[in-house]
Nucleic acid binder design. Structure first.
Lengths: 336, 336
DNA sequence: CTGAAAGCGCTAACAC
DNA sequence: GTGTTAGCGCTTTCAG
């Protein structure tokens, strides 16, 4: 079915068209400095031979591939779970890359082995730049790439000293707006379900909560989840055990908030009458939960787009800001 | 931040280690025929210089990239929608590729421009092989790739004369088992919600339905959706308009079946008392619909894995079967 | 406007 | 075991 048919090279096209390799190269790459009749002859030869340029050869000399990687340090299962973050980032990135006529190469690194493979891939200059999203812990890869001159950017401030530019949102301000809203509504015991503490979004949102509560002299009531719906449901139970009288909970993601809502329903607490719930993300489904979720909106698609813009400028050698912090805002619905 | 720092080449490493390029190449590629002390010297030079092989150069001579593309001719939005097919395929493919230590590059082609870009990418030998899933209409790309000797496989029989090997399921048999189940339960008026008629899964499942009904001399009642939940809900309304007395419906995907369930609930029909519903896919959520969905299970992860196996053998030049048809089986739950 | 020639960085025979 | 050498297929000065 698939034969190892010899592929024609520039050389052969040139011979057939009766010109030099250089001329064929010019025509193939759309140079205008070639006489029309010759252009035509070359094009015909290309067509007849079914010539397709060898990208590796081209890359070797031009030092560019016109493709950009987006690496998600997660398993495929996780990336394709119901977490709305991944689709949002990918959509934003796709849109912007499309506009720049660059190929998006999506890579998932759920294991150490795949992380290594991606490292070789990116360090080997198989792409012109690399974007990271959903990073855990202190991944040395962005820094390593930057060190060898490979453009790299992150979504979410990298933990540790940021070695590459990043775009993130103002987590602390976002959480503050949520907590303030709860306080204004007269809530007394405000708990939180935090995200994983190896991710900056988890850490910052918890910090934001603590800070906001400290300002109003309340005590923190904390449970930690991992951004999945299930972990939210479980965390809510813990919270209820810890303080049966809590009357509000700020949840670090809508998915976890949905899980929390389920638990509250199961134990017979009314939302928002007994317990107010505020999520984070403003995921599509937050409008359809029962009751619809009050949540902190983050411009997730915009994050994807900004990453691309940053990366392309970096690749052009232009100076770029160290960080781009996008604003969030509270979307009030029925849950709190 | 990112400097265009000169990257060391084999040459420089060789000079520093006081050996030849060939020796460095051997060490880097793990050849055992190098004396241990020299190996050590080379490794040190590599480390000190931060040498990383240039993949384009390597590819140019070896003619391989160790990466494989999975192209999904859909927009990112669609790929990351709630359709469980994409995650399943990607998971199966990832697992198997991981085992083979190949890099997966995922490409989405939601527009004509991106389809073109992918064509250049694949034809240009940026990858060692290409897998296609979720194909619409008669895409010429798989055939074009095969023609230039680039290994390619599809999931789902390509429309038209298949130019490349493919793995698919036995749609007709799967549907037949569902319809037979309905018949055995004494259902009289069995309708169907078909999938899009530009996709083989849509076409075949409808054909299976027609065939099964013809055998039992019933009349067909057909509405067509596009595999989304929403289209299932709408199609169900049409069906009810067409034949208010229908007492069963075979739906070509679980997502559409879920939409149909919603419509039935809205118009006050009980499932399965008034109307039996059978879906297709055995998606995870089918267990949690109200009522839980009877459905035709297809081994979706296995499809992904088999695609990879086929592709790798193809790439090795081994002979492969034209098609691999995986079995389905009915999973009976409460809906019908 | 076109061609000749010099590599891009690497691997793989083939000598030594 | 290790080095020498000849390219892989392309772009890009530089002449003409």
């Amino acid at each position: 079915m698939t034969s190892a048919r010899e592929r024609p090279t520039l050389e052969e096209v040139a011979r057939r068209a009766g010109v030099s390799r250089a001329t064929v190269s010019r025509v193939v790459n759309g140079s205008t400095t070639v006489a029309p009749p010759i252009q035509e002859a070359v094009r015909r030869a290309v067509r007849e031979l079914g010539y397709v340029p060898n990208l590796a050869a081209r890359t070797l000399v031009t030092q560019r591939t016109d493709s950009i990687a987006l690496v998600l340090p997660e398993t495929a299962t996780r990336v394709f779970s119901d977490d709305p973050l991944f689709p949002g980032i990918v959509r934003g990135v796709s849109q912007e890359l499309e506009a720049a006529d660059r190929q998006l190469v999506l890579m998932m690194a759920g294991s150490a082995a795949s992380h290594d493979r991606i490292e070789r891939y990116a360090m080997g200059r198989h792409v012109d730049g690399v974007m990271f999203a959903s990073m855990h812990g202190m991944d040395p890869l962005p820094g390593a790439l930057a060190r060898i001159g490979m453009p790299a950017v992150c979504s979410g401030r990298p933990l540790g000293r940021p070695a590459v530019p990043y775009v993130d949102i103002d987590h602390v301000a976002g959480v503050a707006s949520a907590v303030r809203h709860l306080l204004d509504a007269g809530r007394q015991r405000i708990a939180t379900i935090a995200g994983p503490q190896d991710m900056v979004a988890g850490i910052e949102r918890l910090a934001g909560y603590r800070e906001a509560l400290r300002d109003s002299h309340r005590r923190s009531i904390v449970a930690v989840g991992d951004f999945t719906r299930e972990s939210g449901a479980i965390a809510m139970r813990h919270l209820l055990d810890d303080d049966p009288k809590l009357d509000a909970v700020f949840v670090a993601s809508d998915l976890m908030a949905d899980g929390a809502l389920r638990t509250l329903r199961e134990v017979g607490r009314r939302v928002p009458a007994d317990v107010a719930v505020i999520g984070f993300d403003d995921a599509e489904f937050a409008r359809y939960t029962d009751p619809p979720l009050t949540t902190v909106r983050q411009p997730i698609i915009e994050i994807g787009r900004e990453m691309v813009r940053l990366l392309l400028r970096l690749a052009e050698g232009e100076p770029v800001e160290e960080a781009l912090i996008l604003p969030t805002h509270l979307v009030v619905r029925d849950s709190g």
